[in-house]
Nucleic acid binder design. Structure first.
Lengths: 199, 199
DNA sequence: GGACTGAAACGAAACGCCCCGTTTCACCGC
DNA sequence: GCGGTGAAACGGGGCGTTTCGTTTCAGTCC
């Protein structure tokens, strides 16, 4: 009863058809993958899920809310732990790019960014995502700090900001096929700026 | 006749009413500023310009093409020249953020990025913009290289990529009000990674 | 435990509104 | 007249809502 506390979805009454919500989310993802963001419409999702539009609107207040929940259902990318900051960051970006290329996450995230430019809900969610709880990159840097790899006084936030900005832009400009050398070069420039004297 | 070689615009016949195209572009910009990307429609532009839709479609093949030309009409931001790389980069980002905040360029560019997620034309234009001829950032770095501020073997492209990725993401997540300290911190981390031994 | 009942969620269809991109048409200036 | 023009309307589609008749479940009474 106190379970399932997603604030985006309405919580009135118990769901009679528990499959419905799941089928809608799966249909939404399928439509997004097959038809792209331009083909992503509530009507298309309803058709595909063999559901009525009112059923969708009963639980998600808007197209953006549905898109957001589809995004949240995506599996997170792995954070490598090699014991060296450079390898962790390069590996993370490689994992992320591969994940975005090979699953639907990439197009879903792109869609979310696009939707955020015209929908306030999506914009707020995206900002919260970008600023919210420690990102993967912050975790990686903080772990390196504990190992003593990071110079005194270095702030993790701007570092994480730089790295994930790099990832966003490559996603948005179709450059997820970047080879390891390019990634390593960019990461390296940031890294040398924050390395502890010893390293 | 050989003038006005914008490939996006049709070149059939001479324009009878030169005011028309200008009025449409101005209306497009005004709509974009006042109603945002979500309110940007060909019909809205036509209404505002007191023009017919066919007139717009006669000169621009699609909504994206119109948006693109509005973007291209924007005044470019100034590139500072202080003689020090750090000041140039920090100043450039400050100028850029201010320019994006205080003119319509910011929302226009955001709209272009959003449009690129559903329109192939806009996507190609954006990729060309991101990868195309030397960006402002590359120019700044190259100038610093000639002054000997940049270490041997440092590639300008990834540096420029990092800096402008940072700018894009701050635009997309409504963080153009960043204070100088934050910008300086992020730029500094990259800079220390590329500085010549002497600096 | 089994049948009845009423509330709630359901799919389908249609609504009014808006936008897209196109076509038609009368107009007006060269 | 000819070519660009604005106005209007087209078919196609999506949005978010409403209506309608049906299904499904929870609670109740025996």
């Amino acid at each position: 009863m106190a379970e399932d506390a997603d604030p985006a979805r309405r919580s009135i009454g118990a769901r009679r058809n528990p499959d419905s919500a799941g089928a809608i989310l799966e249909a939404a993802e399928a439509v997004l993958v097959e038809a792209g963001y331009s083909g992503f419409s509530i009507e298309a999702v309803a058709r595909r899920a063999r559901a009525g539009k009112p059923t969708i609107y009963r639980w998600w207040p808007s197209k953006a809310a549905l898109l957001l929940e589809v995004y949240k259902r995506q599996k997170r990318v792995d954070i490598p732990d090699t014991g060296r900051l450079e390898e962790d960051l390069v590996g993370f970006l490689q994992n992320l790019f591969k994940h975005w290329r090979e699953t639907s996450s990439g197009s879903i995230f792109r869609s979310l960014i696009a939707e955020a430019q015209s929908d306030e809900t999506a914009s707020a969610a995206l900002a919260e995502y970008a600023l919210g709880r420690p990102s993967h990159t912050v975790q990686i840097v903080e772990r390196a700090r504990q190992r003593g790899e990071v110079a005194e006084g270095v702030d993790s936030a701007p570092v994480a900001d730089l790295i994930s900005s790099y990832a966003w832009r490559h996603l948005l400009t179709n450059r997820l096929d970047q080879d390891e050398q390019s990634i390593r070069k960019a990461v390296g420039y940031v890294l040398r700026g924050i390395a502890a004297p010893g390293n």
